[in-house]
């Protein structure tokens, strides 16, 4: 069993000799295709249309051409949202990747209770993010919350978690790290366990040490999996909304107002739907660029293997 990494279809389509029912394939495929067209492509087209208009009191007002897109370049609050999101994405993904992969390397051995460990690591992945945000309010509570009580009992001074811009960002980053490090850990561990054991045995016979084994075998073979994890984490981190919306409400000030939240407020609080649609396309372009860069990276690594 070698590694089972492959993005689309790994084994070729094994077609059953088709008889009279050839046309039935469309009956199988089309419901899903129409579903996606109706519920994502159509709203996107509608957004494209509405992005060309100004809105007043939530109603379409006047055709303004590309004005909403021009605003993207001068809006400081939007740039703040982008900046906050970049900080969030880079810190969470970096910490999660390093921590999750290191833990997987350390625990990739025979230990008792591995299944229990896996079960427990699955819990954060399916914990409702917005619930975690509200739970965070009670955990990061400055006066007598558990973290600050612990810090004080160790002789430190209370951290102003939710009232200080820097620490508020740390708080939302910590919640995301808590939730998604297990994902990196579980997927890395699954990848590590799919590596061919005989390769290590052969290398050990040749006298390769632990570091060399890691550098020459583990890391290169794990690269496709690691890029894949990176891609999934980046894409999800850019969508971040629930945790700052519940834990910090974007505050203090706009210190944790991530991009999705800024866009949501543009549309749902200020009813500036044309501008919100333009903001959506900016986000879509950013995420698509990242995906296409990484997707190529993953694909090329597959072909080398």
């Amino acid at each position: 069993m070698s590694q089972s990494v492959g993005l689309s279809e790994a084994p070729a389509v094994r077609e059953i000799p088709v008889r009279a029912q050839d046309r039935s394939r469309w009956a199988f495929l089309l419901p899903a295709v129409f579903w996606v067209l109706a519920l994502t492509i159509f709203p996107l087209l509608y957004a494209l249309y509405s992005s060309l208009f100004s809105y007043r009191f939530g109603r379409r007002n006047a055709f303004v051409g590309l004005d909403n897109y021009a605003r993207l370049f001068t809006d400081e609050n939007l740039h703040n949202g982008l900046w906050v999101t970049f900080i969030f994405v880079i810190s969470t993904v970096a910490v999660e990747m390093v921590l999750g992969f290191s833990l997987a390397l350390l625990l990739n051995r025979e230990i008792r209770g591995r299944n229990v460990l896996r079960a427990i690591m699955i819990l954060p992945l399916f914990a409702t993010p917005v619930a975690l945000g509200y739970l965070g309010i009670t955990i990061f509570y400055e006066t007598n919350g558990p973290i600050n009580v612990l810090i004080r009992s160790l002789g430190g001074s209370s951290i102003p978690w939710l009232s200080n811009p820097f620490w508020a960002r740390v708080a939302i980053i910590l919640v995301d790290i808590w939730q998604w490090t297990p994902f990196v850990f579980l997927v890395s561990l699954a990848g590590l366990q799919g590596l061919p054991v005989d390769l290590y045995e052969a290398a050990a016979v040749d006298g390769a040490g632990g570091w060399q084994l890691f550098r020459r075998i583990t890391l290169p073979l794990m690269m496709p999996t690691l890029w894949l994890i990176l891609l999934f984490r980046l894409v999800d981190a850019f969508k971040v909304f629930d945790i700052p919306m519940s834990l910090t409400l974007g505050g203090p000030g706009r210190a944790t107002e991530v991009y999705s939240m800024f866009q949501y407020r543009t549309g749902m609080r200020f009813f500036d739907h044309g501008y919100a649609a333009a903001q959506g396309f900016l986000l879509l372009i950013i995420v698509s660029v990242i995906v296409s860069l990484l997707f190529g990276r993953i694909r090329s690594l597959y072909e080398e293997a």
Partner: peptide, 14 residues
């Protein structure tokens, strides 16, 4: 990869 916020606002309008 589609960010949900991009779809939900036009969907809300519709």
């Amino acid at each position: 990869i589609l960010p949900p916020v991009v779809v939900v606002l036009p969907f809300f309008l519709i």
